[in-house]
Write a protein that binds this DNA or RNA. Structure first.
Length: 488
RNA sequence: GGUGCCGUAGGCAAAUAGGUAAAGCCACAUGACUUUCAAUCAUGUGUUUGCGGGUUCAAAUCCCGUCGGCACCUCCA
């Protein structure tokens, strides 16, 4: 039988890095086995689910290259199927209506907490007589539907990453609610743990791959498979992604949604590569850079770790930089244009293209994230850019202004389109001023780029020259170099 | 409070029928290169697998205990 797996995000927020990593593992597993990867949107929580989150999730998955083969299916479209199955359990006597109110439940939990007991439902309405039910209904109480959980059952499964996992029925919190409160002649809104099983059965899911935070649910769900007379899939619970403090990574930890990573200028291949490394290692563990396709060839849960992995920004940044460094200028330019524009520079993707590609070529090899280009390239775009303190200090040193004046004087008649031409000009200045090359270079850097450090100076100068910015800067720099009245 | 899981250097990790450890990557430090920063290249620091017992000729790998961390215990997913 061919492998069928699914990613089942809930549209109650943007695509989370943890969900995305689970999607990566599912995708990898499906591709490895030539199976199907299914997208199912778990929107049974009508109040919290929002269409814009669904869109964020599907866009994020596609951006990462995790294309699904079937779906998206929406649970909100499948309510009848769930309710039919609830009815089946009711008919079989495996589920029942429970009239306990929320207030009563709260009291129960409070007293359990006071006695330092584990919170659980005491199954008090499991065996109500028709008369008792009628009485509750007469009171105006509406029931939820609970699935019976045998306290004496021992539930065991072989987890693909965790090995044998076993659970006692008594540790499952009592009979579980599978449908929300509704009038007694109806079936209320079916709940997560139940619909997941119905869907996984209905969609023929063969392997349930999800985060470790679902292990306890698995025990409950196994009982549901049994009650529904369905074939049980394989399970694998992957380690969680932890924040730097060691807790499950949540929204509170700052950037956690894929769209945020995208905005920050991570490229999808790098992010996908990094996510697959979080808990999984290729057979050749020295090979850490790979595409999803390459990873799929050998993906295997035998090599998935059990311990949670802390999210490491340094390593993600490094991986991202590696992809950026070797990216072709044309492609990099396409990616960079929105970031330049976001930084407020007026660039025209058409007319400025050659200039922009030259910039991309210059800075690409030292770029870590796309969103760094705003600051990194400011000296190339902003005519009003202020000089840094150390640049000003340098410009005010003896002899520096003279050098810059010489350059400014030579500029109108100089050809400055190639590195060689620029170097020749610098050589001329060296001769005419008698200044050392080191001083000239440093002075030019300070005068031209407003800072003492940055990308290659000669290349930068050429770029500046194309926009006539070098002349402007030189004048300003020379003015800054004049002795100031009252200064020290 | 209960249940479950996990624990190799700052981080990710390798070492899978127990075979005598910390490979590789990130970070960090130093050097080289360069007009500077970054990148790149080279070199280096980090040491006995949370801890304590046990089994064994041999244990990171098995057993017991202990400590710590995390997850779950919703009419959320």
């Amino acid at each position: 039988m061919s492998v069928r797996v699914r990613i089942a995000p809930s549209p109650t927020g943007n695509l989370h890095i943890g969900t995305a990593r689970t999607a990566v593992f599912n995708w990898l597993f499906a591709r490895h086995h030539g199976g199907q990867f299914i997208l199912r949107v778990e929107d049974t929580d009508l109040e919290r689910s929002r269409p814009e989150f669904t869109q964020n999730i599907t866009e994020g998955l596609q951006w990462l290259g995790l294309q699904w083969d079937e779906g998206p299916f929406f649970q909100s479209d499948r309510m009848d199927l769930y309710k039919q199955n609830v009815q089946t359990l009711l008919d079989k006597g495996l589920a029942y209506r429970c009239y306990v109110t929320e207030a009563e439940l709260n009291d129960l939990r409070a007293s359990q907490e006071a006695q330092k007991l584990a919170p659980r439902y005491d199954n008090r309405h499991r065996d109500l007589t028709p008369e008792q039910e009628a009485a509750f209904q007469a009171e105006g109480r509406e029931p939820v539907i609970r699935f019976k959980i045998d306290d004496h059952r021992n539930i065991v499964w072989k987890d693909m990453v965790r090995g044998t996992v076993s659970w006692n029925g008594s540790d499952l919190g009592g009979d579980m609610v599978i449908a929300r409160r509704a009038p007694a002649d109806q079936i209320g809104q079916p709940l997560y743990n139940f619909v997941v099983v119905v869907d996984d059965v209905d969609m023929g899911i063969t392997h349930v791959i999800r985060g470790e935070d679902h292990v306890a649910n698995t025990a409950k769900q196994l009982l549901l498979y049994e009650a529904l007379g369905a074939k049980v899939p394989e399970f694998s619970h992957t380690p969680l992604i932890l924040s730097p403090t060691g807790k499950k990574l949540s929204k509170r930890d700052g950037v956690t949604s894929i769209s945020d990573f995208q905005k920050m200028g991570y490229v999808p291949v790098a992010l996908a590569n990094y996510m697959s490394l979080l808990g999984w290692t290729p057979t050749d563990s020295t090979q850490e850079r790979f595409t999803l396709e390459e990873a799929a060839k050998e993906f295997d849960f035998e090599r998935v770790n059990k311990a949670g992995a802390k999210f490491d920004w340094d390593k993600l940044n490094w991986l991202n930089s590696q992809y950026l460094h070797e990216m072709a200028a044309a492609e990099l330019t396409d990616l960079l244009i929105p970031y330049w524009q976001a930084a407020g520079y007026e660039v025209d993707g058409e007319s400025d293209r050659p200039w922009l590609e030259q910039i991309a070529t210059l800075i690409g090899p030292s770029l870590e994230r796309l969103d760094q280009v705003g600051e990194m390239c400011r000296y190339l775009f902003d005519p009003e850019l202020d000089y840094t303190e150390d640049a000003i200090a340098h410009l005010q040193k003896d002899g520096v202004a003279d050098v810059l004046k010489a350059v400014a004087a030579a500029l109108p008649n100089a050809a400055l389109t190639t590195v060689d031409e620029a170097k020749a000009l610098i050589k001329d200045i060296t001769k005419s001023t008698g200044a050392k090359k080191g001083l000239i270079m440093k002075s030019l850097r300070a005068g031209l780029t407003c800072a003492l450090k940055g990308p290659d100076l000669v290349e930068s100068w050429l770029l500046l020259h194309q926009k006539g910015l070098d002349t402007v800067r030189l004048e300003k720099a020379i003015a800054l170099g004049q002795p100031q009245h009252g200064g020290d």
